[in-house]
């Protein structure tokens, strides 16, 4: 029997993160027994949704210690649960919080850890993409169970299976000595409108926009389209035009919208990793040899500062 666990991040409102549902969907095809571990406020309320996506068991704790302190309480409690139930595979999403927990857990268990996975052909095998997604590498995972695999968001589509989960209460027996790095404030820097990861259309801008003020054109375009979010290349994030939360690519977010519109973005491999799975790609760049055109379904060679304002007008006209 193969037991697969998913470390499920949940919001305090009881909504599981989309990545938790993606991973559970995949876990169903890898194991006979599938469980989720949800730690922190909202865990219990999230159990029905986790069950619906394949968790037969949800190990849950509502204790605020898991939200207040980084990684150590979660790694400690996970290590205890693993010693008791011995899963074969534990999946994490490649998010800020989960990566911290996975790294600590690996060291505790002496287990193998595969980061940046994009697929799992078997419970002891993972696939990752290297060199900006130009090569696919399949890796056999050795060493003691559980194997730890950190999966990039959006690698699998979440599909409900209609199951229900038994909730098993987990004791938050976290020693004082593991309550160290403490979150004291939370800040949102998100623009209004749909989330970047969930929008049907992503309008992304790069250095070719020239300066920060021109970036506002993309916001206007996204508004005109509706259900669209604005993203950015790392070059403009590093330049401080927009917050890091907008970055798309290897070290930023992965998006898979229906349409991705790249404006003034050269299309470096590290950027492509985060967007090449979009259903359709449109690119505007003044350089006909820009690498982004190699993957664009529609490429327009032109100046962003004339094409984008005209496009805003066209879209407004179309939508009446």
């Amino acid at each position: 029997m193969t037991t697969v666990w998913v470390y499920a991040e949940v919001g305090a409102d009881g909504r599981p993160e989309p990545t938790a549902l993606e991973l559970l969907t995949k876990a169903r095809s890898l194991g006979d027994a599938v469980a989720a571990v949800a730690l922190g406020p909202g865990a219990r309320a999230a159990a029905p949704a986790l069950g619906e996506h394949g968790a037969q068991t949800v190990y849950a704790s509502e204790d605020p210690v898991f939200a207040e302190f980084l990684a150590e309480p979660a790694a400690h409690v996970l290590a205890g649960l693993i010693a008791e139930h011995r899963p074969n595979l534990l999946l994490f999403a490649a998010t800020y919080d989960s990566r911290e927990v996975a790294g600590r857990l690996q060291a505790r268990l002496g287990a193998t850890l595969m980061a940046n996975a994009t697929d799992l052909p078997a419970p002891d095998r993972a696939v990752t993409q290297i060199f900006g997604g130009t090569r696919v590498v399949e890796v056999a995972l050795g060493g003691p169970d559980p194997k730890l695999v950190v999966v990039r968001p959006k690698s699998f589509a979440a599909e409900p299976s209609g199951g229900t989960a038994d909730v098993v209460e987990v004791a938050a027996d976290v020693p004082e000595g593991l309550r160290r790095a403490r979150r004291v404030e939370r800040h949102e820097e998100r623009a209004a409108g749909p989330k970047l990861e969930e929008a049907r259309v992503v309008v992304a801008g790069g250095r070719g926009l020239g300066d920060e003020a021109n970036f506002d054109l993309l916001r206007q375009l996204a508004d005109a389209i509706g259900n669209a979010a604005v993203g950015a290349s790392r070059a403009v994030v590093d330049a401080g035009w927009v917050p890091y939360a907008l970055q798309i690519g290897q070290t930023g977010k992965t998006v898979k919208p229906d349409v991705y519109i790249a404006v003034g973005i050269s299309g470096a491999i590290q950027h492509r990793v985060g967007m090449k799975e979009a259903k359709r790609i449109v690119a505007v760049n003044k350089d006909a040899d820009a690498p982004i055109f190699e993957i664009a379904d529609l490429g327009v060679v032109g100046d962003a500062l004339t094409v984008v304002p005209a496009l805003i007008e066209e879209v407004r006209r179309h939508r009446g």
Binding site: M114, T134, D297, E314
Partner: peptide, 28 residues
């Protein structure tokens, strides 16, 4: 961990490329 195989990723084909002659926005 042992790498078992390395393959080229499936390529996404190049689509249509047009030069903007005032009609680029309409085409998009």
């Amino acid at each position: 961990q042992t790498v078992e195989r390395v393959d080229a990723a499936p390529e996404r084909g190049r689509g249509e490329l047009v030069q903007d002659a005032g009609d680029g926005a309409a085409r998009i």
